[in-house]
Nucleic acid binder design. Structure first.
Lengths: 223, 223
DNA sequence: TGCACCATCGGGATTCACCCTGATTTGCAC
DNA sequence: GTGCAAATCAGGGTGAATCCCGATGGTGCA
């Protein structure tokens, strides 16, 4: 024991209600872990977290409207007196997501294949100050800090925010696999303009080519 | 009432244990819906379904090793005397997935943002013979039957199975956004060989270009 | 009024993706 | 051994993608 006076207070953030129920059910058998609130959207999450002041926030990384990272930033910007520790829960183990989430301030990153007991243990450890990573992810993180791995450029949301409306439109069509010619016909503009937008999108997102961009977009639920 | 003698017997298939717990918890409050078993892998699912003979199988479409469609086929091949009805549960609402799942024999397709009451109602309806679709998906299905929509080619798993080990390896690297040159260096082979493999992969998966292929792969959790 | 940003195009050049034909070697099965 | 699939590579070609340069008009803001 580290001298805690009560249970670990946990707040759940995930846009899938059924998944939140699952976490609740799994954690119900853990006497020292208490779910004090949950939310299914970014704005609800930020408000709920500030109000309930949990020890740990279990955060789905891939959510609409900016994703879990937006929640992380929103809470950080509000600067509560007892800031929670963030533990990312994700179906993805893409290195980009891991790095981005950690840089945004999460203390751990586990995939959703985890079971209830492991999840509870992860909650305790991050609350007590440890960093927790799924086995497959630990390698990415270590390699990235030692600089020994060709880790892809981390992609945070500022890149997405920096896109103009027209560029977002082009990005969506690019991610769907359309050629420049098809996009030009769809938007009723010339191929040259599409090229310009695409080039800007690639530069702003720091992706090297269309395929990396497609991956990047799909992982962010841009369809 | 349609004259049923007992509760709706449901079997859960999802590789995320926490999600299965969530479904259990959500359905626990429904008196006429009973969860009779669950599985986290394709082989376990097929065995468990054949043994427990449920009325309805709730199926995650995106699972490792062939996905939910493999479960559907495995059960169909076994031809049990009382075959269950399949209801697909997925985070994806991509038209390709919907069409492929329906063609494989599912009676409904709902996204995981559904809540417990809706899920229970969906279970009852498919068990009673209805087809059930999330609002956003209904359009896709109707359009595809009226032939009025440019529905993408449905992609089933035989295409994935037909890939050779080397082609799978190349596919993984393609899906990560590497260029042919980078893949060649990584695998220590010539660019020409990479081109051959890539060309074979595109033909076998029936994708028209790298970007569509990247989407295809990412949607199948190939990283 | 001036400046910055956005959206729109063009010329020109390079690289990449993709296809076709054809070839060799290896290993495994019949 | 014969046959076949898999993996390897080459030449040559077309179109797409990407980047570089520059240019125009509109919009909003100091």
């Amino acid at each position: 024991m580290t001298g805690r006076s009560g249970p670990y207070r946990v707040f759940l953030v995930d846009d899938h209600g059924v998944f939140r129920s699952g976490v609740r059910a799994e954690l119900a058998s853990e006497a020292d872990v208490q779910v004090v609130g949950e939310a299914g959207s970014v704005v609800d999450a930020i408000a709920g977290i500030l109000q309930s002041a949990p020890d740990v926030v279990l955060l789905d990384v891939h959510m609409p409207a900016g994703g879990g990272i937006a929640v992380l930033r929103g809470v950080a910007d509000a600067a509560p007196s007892n800031p929670p520790v963030f533990l990312a829960l994700s179906v993805s183990d893409a290195a980009e997501d891991v790095i981005a989430t950690i840089r945004a301030g999460a203390r751990g990153y586990v995939t959703k294949t985890i079971d209830g007991a492991e999840l509870a243990e992860s909650v305790r450890r991050v609350a007590d100050g440890d960093a927790v990573f799924s086995p497959r992810l630990a390698g990415f993180v270590l390699d990235s800090f030692t600089g020994r791995s060709p880790v892809p450029e981390p992609q945070l949301d500022p890149e997405l925010d920096s896109l103009t409306p027209r560029e977002m439109e082009v990005l969506r069509l690019l991610a769907r696999g359309f050629t420049y010619r098809e996009i030009a016909e769809d938007l009723v503009i010339s191929i040259k303009t599409v090229e310009t937008h695409a080039s800007n999108v690639l530069r702003k997102t720091q992706q090297s080519n269309r395929n990396a961009l497609t991956r990047w977009a799909v992982n962010r639920h841009i369809h």
